[in-house]
Design a protein around this nucleic acid. Structure first.
Lengths: 203, 203, 203, 203
DNA sequence: AAGTAATCGAGACGGTACGTCCGGTCTTCCT
DNA sequence: AGGAAGACCGGACGTACCGTCTCGATTACTT
């Protein structure tokens, strides 16, 4: 989970105490190795042993900073992809939502989508991974979505009694559903169809 | 995946051929053992070795009939739960949908939901499991949902241009989303809120 | 161990009792299959399963007639090789012994020797194999050797107080020793050297 | 095959390199467990699993240091028996040889002999075992025997043209022959008879 | 400058499960 | 009664990772 951020953020001065400081070189080597393995062979290939070997690092060093291999994997994923989330806020909700959803559909269709599916899959049995995933991936997107929808409500584009959480679930849930269950593909017309149904209802 | 069903159901004649017939006793023992383990310790506890030991069966016998432990797990899950799907068709779509979704929310909140989450998780790296899951769980529910919505369209309760697949994704996708990502709980108001938003839209 | 011999030897009339008689076809197929496997991959390749599959025979049929796979192997070995033992009795003991030993050295140097080594090896943990091996291979050779030496004693070529059993062990034991332990090769000068040493002693 | 000995004996300096050093505790536990199993149930009982379980050691640790279970078995055998070879060199060759052979006959008649037979048997399909066996058991004895005979030649007790290798095979080969083929027992008169025949010849 | 403390690499270790192979045994149908 | 087919239990195989544990070697801060 890479606790380095929080531990060091304090005081800016870089209070560090005695002892050898953490090797930044090792940290990056680990993340790069893990990302490479993830891309080449999916989560299954990113074993602790393989990561350590490829990074030229001892397994203990990894365990020192991450609690599970899933945790390394998420960090590596975002270290590599550092995903553009795209803040769309043109004032036209339909357009912004469609753009946002299209972006995600595109991402989910590629290699990154396959890996994301594996990560969510592994999160079912790896709490650390799940936490990290929510913090780094889910939450930012929900926050952005909340702002978008709240804005539309404020502008009077949407009814004021809209349940924002449910709205987000109905807009984005289907993407994860299709990604994870694969009953249907994530195809091109989907984003527009989702937005249209969300805005106008079925009645 | 238990290939036995189809092969024998045909024609009632009981075509069997030479050789010792498959042991029904072993089949049931395996499914029961797997179901027990699944309930007690989740998918992680349902290892091939544990299942075999508990069922008093050799590992080869399991491998003979199921390609992966995930496949055994799904079969065991449905062997044990044989889930009531509830055909609601009162003619009032809102009521029927709410009932249907409430049923699933209730299921997802219990032990069965935790196991289902693990199964979908494991399905990300186990194609056999994924297939089985779609066939036994997803597809029947989508079929039922399709009938419900098509009926409402036919009755004029819904607009005729509703995209049924997207509609189902928006109604049920959020449940899987919350089950798997756990960003929010599957709470009591959710079913009604989903149905209302689906019918009336947000605008 | 192939108990068929005794059962059939009687009277030609073929008293056989009720039921289907033993299939000679199966017996030969088993021996041929086992011999082939033995030659291709050594004793390790001649598993019951492999023999049965290759012979187009069920495993039970093999177990019915042979107590262990080692037993099948010896029978197959002699079924295939039906080894020429060569009765040398020219009246010149040195010549006869040398011929006899040379014959065995030649046999031990080829594929048959490798298999023989494996058979003796397996006989250490397979009593049926050991019995069969002594009966079919060792004993005939010891009998022939006994006659040879006894004849020489009778003719006055050897001292009358020679211990024939020890003599045979000293003449042939070294061959098995080198075959099994491989500390030295079974080379060309060996037969003559053995015979000379045996006759004249070292003093 | 326990590669530890040679690697460390050199230079006394105790070169060790990085990493956790090999556990001497584990090494001894393995050898003791294997020896116990060997004695209790023969080579068949000394499976990798049984050795590991009894030694409280993981299987990988065994595979790390020994290439096959046969290799562990030989090492365990000699770890336990550390066989007295008895350097007899009284100047009377007949006496020395007889003593030497008697010693080996006695050994071959006990539990150790049964195990040795199984080891030689297994060596037919386990090259590592065979190598180890020659190095630890056969070679020392042949070296000792060579010295004995060479000494006798030097003293004029034996003809100078005696082929020492053949002589050793004729003296000791019969013991292995009877041990492995069991056509005759290793009885009390055998040592003297062998020596006498070797010295005086049969003519 | 010496001492203290944390990290790092290497790699051995106990453990759990994997998926496979064979050995023997059994059950059923066919001949 | 054979015999072919083939399912079954049991036991061992050799391998893969896991997470933990020594080691010796670095690399900073502290006194």
């Amino acid at each position: 989970m890479d606790r380095s951020g929080a531990g060091r953020s304090g005081a800016g001065s870089g209070r560090s105490g005695p002892g050898r400081p953490r090797s930044e070189r090792a940290r990056l080597a680990i993340l790069d190795a893990a990302a490479d393995l993830l891309i080449e062979g999916g989560l299954a290939a990113a074993t602790m042993e393989a990561i350590a070997a490829r990074a030229g690092v001892s397994k203990v060093t990894i365990y020192k900073w991450w609690p599970s291999r899933g945790a390394v994997a998420v960090d590596a994923y975002f270290h590599r992809y550092r995903p553009e989330m795209g803040m769309f806020d043109s004032g036209d909700l339909a357009r912004d939502l469609t753009a946002q959803i299209t972006l995600m559909v595109d991402a989910f269709r590629g290699r990154a989508g396959a890996i994301m599916a594996e990560l969510i899959g592994a999160a079912q049995t790896d709490a650390a991974l799940a936490d990290q995933l929510r913090a780094l991936w889910i939450q930012p997107r929900r926050d952005a979505g909340t702002i978008l929808i709240q804005g539309a409500i404020d502008r009077g584009e949407l009814r004021p009694d809209v349940d924002i959480q449910v709205a987000l679930d109905q807009l984005f849930g289907p993407l994860y559903f299709r990604l994870l269950v694969r009953h249907l593909p994530l195809d091109d017309p989907m984003p527009a169809a989702l937005v249209r149904a969300f805005l106008d209802g079925a009645r």
